[in-house]
């Protein structure tokens, strides 16, 4: 290593201080928020029965962890979300590839895709229960229904926005349309695929929670519904916190 110059040291020092200020401020905001919440609830400025308070949440969390129910709920929700996430990714990549290969097919299906994508998916959940029964399949399908159409649409858009000159290059090298897919379209769409995955994991979770609201005996969605029915707001807030830590 070279000896650092005075200017470089000064620069590093300023950078370090900048990062420290940012980090400390973040923690401070959280702590002061919790403090104000606890304080106002204890002094009766807000109603702790409705708004709950940090100490009650901690107590409730302790109960749920000691009898391990929270882990069961988190595990179930996580399992359902991940299954529906992978199904969405797999199906939407295959569907987008099929649409890309056939311009006719994509033009025929385009209005259907747009309509299906704009459906309010939470309204589908009651239908799914009737069709598939109140079981885990329904919840996974509900998770998929939120993400899948948008995912196919944006994947197809990214596939068809590949530079046509790059595809022409493949043809000049005597390649086929399949080569264009595997050598150009898929690799150049990789950033888009990763972006869509990031969005989808959140969407699948939303769908799974909607499903659990209606058709579950465990999972975080069930915990929220159950807690609200017995007016234990701390339970709802714990579920919300679990989401934050999960993702």
């Amino acid at each position: 290593m070279n000896e650092l110059s005075v200017e470089q040291k000064k620069f590093l020092h300023i950078q370090k201080r900048h990062r420290r200020v940012v980090g400390v401020s973040r923690v401070l905001i959280l702590l002061s928020f919790l403090f104000v919440w606890e304080f106002t609830a204890n002094t009766g400025i807000i109603d702790s029965f409705i708004f709950s308070c940090p100490s009650k949440i901690a107590l409730c969390f302790w109960e749920l962890t000691t009898d391990r129910t929270i882990f069961v709920h988190i595990g179930v929700t996580l399992y359902e979300t991940i299954i529906s996430f992978f199904l969405v990714i797999g199906i939407s990549i295959l569907a987008a590839i099929a649409l890309w290969f056939s311009r006719k097919l994509s033009e025929i299906l385009d209005p259907y895709m747009v309509v299906l994508n704009s459906l309010p998916k939470s309204a589908l959940a009651p239908l799914l229960i009737v069709w598939l029964g109140a079981n885990q399949t329904t919840i996974i399908v509900a998770g998929m229904s939120v993400a899948i159409f948008g995912s196919i649409l944006s994947l197809y858009t990214s596939f068809s926005s590949v530079d046509p000159e790059k595809i022409k290059l493949i043809y000049t090298l005597q390649g086929t349309r399949l080569h264009a897919m595997t050598k150009v379209v898929l690799p150049s769409s990789l950033p888009a695929i990763i972006n869509i995955m990031k969005v989808n994991i959140g969407l699948c979770l939303v769908g799974v929670i909607i499903g659990e609201f209606l058709a579950a005996r465990n999972g975080l969605g069930y915990l929220i519904i159950y807690s609200s029915q017995v007016f234990r707001c701390a339970g709802i807030l714990i579920s919300l916190l679990s989401f934050i830590f999960l993702f």
């Binding site: 530079d163 000159e165 022409k168 290059l169 000049t172 150009v184 690799p187 150049s188």
Partner: peptide, 11 residues
């Protein structure tokens, strides 16, 4: 066939 732009793939 050599195209106008090199079309080298960044990946």
């Amino acid at each position: 066939y050599m195209l106008q732009h090199d079309q080298l793939f960044e990946w």
